[in-house]
Write a protein that binds this DNA or RNA. Sequence first.
DNA 1: GGATGTGAATGCATTCACAGCA
DNA 2: TGCTGTGAATGCATTCACATCC
Lengths: 207, 207
Amino acid sequence: MENKRIPIPTFQRLSLYLRELEHMQRKERVKTVSSSKLAAALSLTDSQVRKDLAYFGQFGHRGLGYNIVKLSESLKKILGRNIIRSTIIIGAGNLGSALASYSEFSHRGFPIEGVFDVDKKKIGKKINGLVIRDMDTLEKVIAKKNITMAIIAVNAIHAQSVVDRLVESGIKGILSFAPIAVTVPEGVFLRTVDISVEIEQVAVHME
Amino acid sequence: MENKRIPIPTFQRLSLYLRELEHMQRKERVKTVSSSKLAAALSLTDSQVRKDLAYFGQFGHRGLGYNIVKLSESLKKILGRNIIRSTIIIGAGNLGSALASYSEFSHRGFPIEGVFDVDKKKIGKKINGLVIRDMDTLEKVIAKKNITMAIIAVNAIHAQSVVDRLVESGIKGILSFAPIAVTVPEGVFLRTVDISVEIEQVAVHME
DNA sequence: GGATGTGAATGCATTCACAGCA
DNA sequence: TGCTGTGAATGCATTCACATCC
């Protein structure tokens, strides 16, 4: 009974459910939420919410709905939020600097342990309390601080070589904002967000 | 024959194909590319590439592949890159400022015509040549400059009210970076990128 | 009565496999 | 021979519909 394949989109939605539940905990006084209410908040269907959650166990109570606090806790476990994963950012340009200041990362269990750049003019400067380090020290820092994840905010030209170095150093998860396709070997997970692609998709689908 | 439903993921991939073709135009000397080569570059299957393209016409030549320049031109038309869409950014915090400096937007047909914020201390300052405007002038600027798209980089608390104002002013496409679910009425297209969700998904799927 | 949990049914997207053409 | 274009087959994800339980 526990070996059902879980759809990939389900995991994405679990993050959204948790985000929504946390907002509810702050704003609402009710202790419980129904699948249809949660669905409405995210423009989904109620059966989708129920099915997604049911893959991982029985969290609800028939007739009542889901306890907000308890469901949040369960989702945190499923999503691995209890585990702290030290993360680094490669590239201290506009986007990299903005990401380095993004406090949500540490709140969600991804403390930024370093920001790297090749530009000698930037090295040594600080962003939000984080000193920009020389790319030459990348491997050393990864090993010493037990880094497992990286965020890439470098340009298209350097993206693949940076990825290769990260993989070589044992990084297992990469979030790339570089506007190019890069490849990683089996065993390393890569997710790419290309901001230009995102805006283009808005244009394609509007009206 | 022309009324086939086109899968939504196909449009996303068209953007990737075009991005890849443009890189090839810069780097490679060959005039042509096969579906399998294009697929390999993006970690997709060759039949997927062919099917995606075939929804929009016959762009290839059997035995030869696709002409890179011609296919690029066709994809640009399909994706609407020939049309210039004036865009604004709401929120001049870290992320909003980084986005305001992101030159790819104008290169791809999305010139940034304004950056807005409520913070009086920021208003009047410049980011990359763009003056930060008072949110009070939002509606006026949208009407005057014929803005149809907006990028939102405000916090969770203000996101929905900003969206409502944009919709009210006639904006038809929104790209939101706010870490919250917002809703738009029928006829307005919304796409959300939540950076915290993205990094969390990397953690969930790695190893 | 109200809302979950879940097999069955449907719908959507990808892959197969091969005819057809340069 | 090489590679596209495409119906058919498969696989994946969502929705339906209802038994189940507080």
